[in-house]
Write a protein that binds this DNA or RNA. Structure first.
Lengths: 213, 213
DNA sequence: ATCAAATTAAAACGTAAGTTTGAAACGCTT
DNA sequence: AAGCGTTTCAAACTTACGTTTTAATTTGAT
């Protein structure tokens, strides 16, 4: 009847994921984590070694599969479309994010928010460990977008990718970031499918807009 | 010859602004601040009352003038253009940000980064104090965009504004957020004018794209 | 059932945080 | 020069942090 209680390490990961999103890395103490996870304080250092290492574990548990999903979608698209479409490309990124957002078992929308948050916080862990490891991801998308938008120079393409990914991350992050600006409850009622309905056209329009002289 | 040393409170504000951007609010200690500002540790609490209050001071020193500039540009645009153009509207926001970014005397690009960072960190101070205070800003832009894009429903308009502002903030924030994705040194070499050259068309294209059914 | 390894538990450690205190130094008016 | 409010300073206070330690307990293979 009742779901069996996950093991200590998993409980710590789950609670940490939520708290890191809510309060940020620095503002989340191990005591908050272990208390809410109902485990002993020392368990974090026993299972993960340090708070830093815990963060990395929280992060990698979700990021690795997410990136793998994106690359799989990308593979599939490249066999399906002769000439890569921008919308198709955008979708290879958005669909895995959306799937993750809708799957509570994998942290639901939490991790995407954590990812977004971590990106702007410019964490050392993200700069060092992770960014190297996933240069594959970068290269694949850079090449794909170059093929889909051959008329753009490298500089303009880099900017547009920068803009596009920052919109997408923020959209899924669904930080109430811009409720300040848009006030309406509409935006805060974040149905993931709604996001995509409006997000894809917006991003695609920006990406395919005429070349700047 | 040499610039006269600013008073204690100003020195604290200047250093705090930089450190809050670099390391975030929680990870910046008063001891780091007072050391770099070459003032006594107690000076922060004497002049500002608390670390929280210091943050609010740092924030409001720049935000109030920035918002005032945007609204002034908006006023000017409304007298100049019969039918508001989307590009004009976007520019009323971007131009003050750009001006701020290029003015070291007003914190240069630092504050815009702090603003962006604070938005995704979802600070209590931003949620409480500031968001109420600047509902004027929200309402003005909401109304203006509604006039410029009358064919959009309130829901779709809210989303597009959400997307648009999140791109713009991230662009100026110039966190190396997406260097991870775009890798090229181009994006990190952040000439503010370059940002605008590519940013405005991107955002406008997204905003004016065809209505979704 | 036994024993070694893995895990949990309680307590303490050392450090660094934000804040407070009370005296010294300063700036200004008289 | 004296007096007074403002500002600076060194030092201490309290609290909370991440981590370590040591012992108790559980687990799993023999």
């Amino acid at each position: 009847m009742e779901a069996s209680r996950p093991d200590t390490a998993t409980r710590i990961l789950d609670v940490s994921e939520r708290l890191f999103v809510e309060h940020g890395f620095e503002a989340t103490s191990l005591r908050m984590i272990t208390q809410q996870a109902e485990v002993n304080l020392a368990a974090v250092n026993y299972h993960f070694g340090s708070k830093d290492a815990l963060f990395e574990s929280v992060f990698m548990r979700r990021l690795a599969p997410l990136i793998a999903s994106c690359l799989a979608e990308l593979d599939e698209l490249e066999t399906r479309e002769e000439k890569l479409s921008v919308e198709g490309l955008v979708t290879t990124f958005i669909r895995p994010c959306l799937a993750l957002s809708k799957d509570p078992a994998r942290g639901g929308a939490l991790f995407v928010r954590l990812l977004s948050r971590t990106l702007v916080e410019n964490h050392r862990l993200l700069r060092e460990t992770i960014s190297q490891q996933y240069s594959v991801f970068v290269q694949r998308y850079s090449r794909a977008f170059h093929l889909a938008l051959p008329e753009l120079g490298v500089e303009e393409l880099a900017w547009r990718m920068h803009f596009a990914f920052s919109v997408m991350f923020n959209a899924f992050a669904g930080n109430d970031v811009l409720k300040i600006f848009t006030r309406s409850q509409i935006v805060s009622a974040r149905d993931p499918d709604m996001i995509v309905k409006y997000l894809v056209p917006f991003v695609v329009a920006g990406l395919v807009s005429p070349v700047q002289r």
